[in-house]
């Protein structure tokens, strides 16, 4: 790392940590939302960008984790760590089961299977009323507090909690994609047959990536439940999966910065544009089309290409 980068990093970090107290409440809310969606988008990118598997059911792990947090906090008053642990475990378990079914397929078949599995999960959330309260959703999820007395109830502490979660996810995912395992994943994305010929267990690599990806989606889901204080089947719906897919595609698949950028752009577009115009969906649509036509590798890809 050059001294220039180090200074830039330090300045950005200082800003990211130092600025939130001075932000107006709504801006802080949006920034928290961006961080959580960024975790979710990065988790999907591990599959889409690094392993070359486009999943349309990723909201399942996000939603399952969110429901675990919702049920455990509202019905059992479980602690933050217990909730987080159980949520991650549930997301991993779901990914482990779904992975067994989905990893067998590739391309459009993988897309279809994950879509179906995602909708099955949505159907469960919608119809298993005794557990999930059906379409009314579960409300009244309190923001977490630690046994040491540290409470994240107020927006600012919760924002920092999300920042920590984001940095951990970013750090771990950076390690994963740079590790030999991550490089093999990228090899599989490029040419699966060659990797197989070289003796790599392609299925196992994909399977582990699938579970890891589910785990990070679970982290985002758990944070989301705390953030929103409300979980309903919409969180698991196809629309959520597609939106996340678009975040990754917009920002730049195969990079970790891309999904973060995509999450930021979409959250801001959705919430700020709509203040000014009813036609915000149209503008968002045009942006998607523009990016796909002009910058198929996303914003990050376009910026890199321009250099």
């Amino acid at each position: 790392m050059t001294w220039r980068r180090a200074i830039a990093l330090a300045a950005c970090a200082a800003l990211l940590v130092g600025a939130p107290p001075f932000l107006p409440p709504y801006a802080l809310t949006l920034l928290t939302q961006i961080l959580i969606y960024a975790i979710f988008a990065m988790s999907l990118d591990l599959l889409l960008g690094y392993t070359g598997l486009a999943s349309l059911g990723h909201a399942a792990y996000f939603g399952i984790a969110a429901y675990v947090v919702a049920i455990m906090t509202t019905q059992h008053q479980a602690s933050f760590w217990a909730c987080l642990g159980a949520a991650l475990l549930a997301a991993c378990a779901a990914a482990a089961v779904f992975g067994l079914v989905a990893i067998r397929a590739t391309g459009v078949y993988f897309l279809m299977i994950t879509l179906a599995l995602g909708m099955v999960t949505w159907g469960l959330a919608f119809r298993w009323v005794s557990l999930t309260m059906g379409d009314n959703g579960i409300s009244g999820i309190a923001r977490p507090s630690l046994s040491s007395g540290l409470s994240f109830a107020r927006p600012l502490p919760f924002h920092y909690l999300s920042l920590v979660a984001f940095l951990i996810a970013f750090g771990l995912l950076s390690l994963i994609v740079r590790s030999p395992f991550g490089l093999s994943l990228q090899g599989i994305r490029e040419t699966e047959r060659r990797m197989r010929a070289l003796g790599y267990d392609v299925w196992l690599h994909k399977y582990v990536a699938f579970i890891l990806s589910g785990a990070f989606a679970g982290l985002a889901g758990a944070m989301w439940a705390y953030y929103d204080g409300f979980v309903s089947p919409v969180e698991i719906h196809l629309v959520t999966s597609v939106e996340t897919l678009l975040m990754v595609a917009l920002g730049g698949p195969g990079t970790l910065v891309g999904p973060v950028l995509g999450a930021g752009v979409i959250v801001l577009f959705k919430n700020l544009l709509s203040i000014y115009t009813k036609r915000w969906l149209l503008i968002l649509g045009l942006v998607y089309i523009g990016v796909i036509v002009l910058a198929p590798k996303g914003i990050v890809g376009a910026v890199r290409g321009a250099r």
């Binding site: 990093l9 300045a11 600025a19 801006a27 920034l31 961006i34 970013f170 950028l261 801001l268």
Partner: peptide, 25 residues
């Protein structure tokens, strides 16, 4: 380098939001 950019993006968002919304009242 990637991490630098991610942080930069977030910082820019933070600032932009502050400027964009701070004046509302």
């Amino acid at each position: 380098m990637r991490s630098v950019r991610a942080v930069a993006v977030l910082s820019a968002a933070t600032l932009g939001l502050g400027v964009g919304l701070g004046v509302r009242g």
